Amino acid sequence: MSAVNKLLVLYTGGTIGMQMSAAGLAPASGFEARLRGQQALESGRQLPPWIFRELLPPLDSANMTQANWLSMRDAIVQAVDADGCDAVLVLHGTDTLAYSAAALSFLLLDLTVPVLLTGSMRPAGSPGSDAWSNLFGAMQALQQGVPAGVQLFFNGALLHGARVSKLKSDAFDAFSVLPRRRQGEAVAILPGHLDYRQPRQPVNLAVLPLFPGLQAAQVEALLASGVRGLLLECYGSGTGPADNAALLAALKSAHGRGVVLAAISQCPHGHVEFGVYAAGNLLQQTGLVSGGGMTREAALGKLFSLLGAGLSQAEVEHWFVRDLCGELVE
């Protein structure tokens, strides 16, 4: 955890750089000049040397897509492997910041430098904004030394990239790591086809929360859209409507066609443990694999990384239940 000699600041847009338009706050370019101007006013801070790159067009993170995740991954790999950067700071909107942190955690496995993501709840320059404290706080943390891997820096705290969730919509401490049970088999040596050098492709994925009254026809319609991976948000420890034979048949048929079916718990502090209830056992028999205590963001990012690497259904299921970067094991 040595001091940073060359930092890439990767600007993707978000509230931190937004400016007022006729329609309201909107993403804006030109943030590098604003950042350098503010740094000149903060001469007391010890900050690493940095270069700046902007992904265009700047995004409201509500518009974030898998293609944008891949663009971020490509820019980070280019900066580290070709440009000699030894740390990366990603500036990002808060709405999908936890999703991007999780996705990058799995897209950048075995990367030997720290990658921090940050943003702000109020735009830089607005009264009472948290923008500069988050941005310069992240820079200072990197200067002092941060372990390799993906983390989120927000409101003075470093948070694990594959465990964090946004829990508040209007407070500076918007992000937290919930105390979900994390247990499983950790991977001692990561295979080369999963590390950050492996290119990925976009994947048709879906997330479906179970709810009372869910109909088999609704699930069948979703599965008929060509999804390659379906993340089911189950009740409690992994239960669902196990007396709905048509729904169970739809899931089992999809699994037989090669669709990866994965389960997480809807409970904020929950985890999947199929063997506790008969309803969980019946659901598991359709082909579901357990996401343990993973968050929605982590499970979705993990499915994207594994399926996007071109792995087979069996390979995805094998690696999904194993800890790759701390998403399952403390």
Rank of each mutant, 00 (worst) to 15 (best):
M1I: 09
S2R: 15
V4H: 04
N5E: 15
V9L: 15
V9E: 05
V9A: 06
I16T: 09
G17C: 09
G17R: 01
S21Q: 13
A23P: 01
A26N: 12
A28E: 12
G30I: 09
G30V: 13
L35W: 09
L35I: 15
G37N: 03
A40M: 14
L41S: 13
L47A: 04
L47S: 01
W50S: 08
L55A: 06
D60V: 02
N63C: 07
A67S: 13
A67L: 14
L70Y: 01
D74R: 10
V77I: 14
D81M: 10
G84R: 01
D86W: 00
V90N: 01
L91E: 01
H92D: 06
H92W: 04
T94R: 08
T96Q: 03
Y99R: 03
S100P: 09
A101P: 12
L107W: 07
D110R: 11
V113W: 00
P114T: 01
V115M: 04
T118N: 11
G125H: 05
S126Y: 07
P127D: 08
S129Q: 07
W132P: 01
L135V: 08
G137E: 01
A138E: 03
M139H: 03
M139F: 06
L142C: 08
L142Q: 02
L142G: 02
Q144S: 14
G145C: 09
V146H: 03
A148E: 05
V150A: 03
L159Q: 07
R163Y: 04
K168V: 00
K168C: 00
K168I: 00
S169M: 08
S169F: 00
A171M: 05
S176F: 10
S176R: 14
R181Q: 11
R181S: 04
R181A: 10
R182A: 08
A188C: 03
D195H: 14
A206L: 03
L208K: 14
L208H: 11
P209C: 10
L210P: 05
F211D: 10
G213T: 10
Q218K: 10
Q218D: 12
L223A: 06
G226T: 08
L232C: 08
S237T: 15
S237E: 12
T239P: 02
T239W: 06
P241T: 02
A242N: 10
D243V: 12
A246Y: 08
A246N: 14
L251A: 04
S253C: 08
R257V: 05
V259K: 03
V260I: 05
L261S: 08
A262R: 04
Q266R: 15
P268Y: 11
G270M: 08
F274D: 01
T286E: 02
L288S: 11
G293H: 10
M294R: 04
R296Q: 15
R296I: 10
L300R: 13
G301F: 07
F304K: 05
G308F: 08
G310P: 12
L311K: 14
V316Q: 06
E317Y: 08
F320I: 12
V321E: 09
G326D: 06
L328I: 07
L328P: 03
V329Y: 11
E330Y: 13
E330A: 14
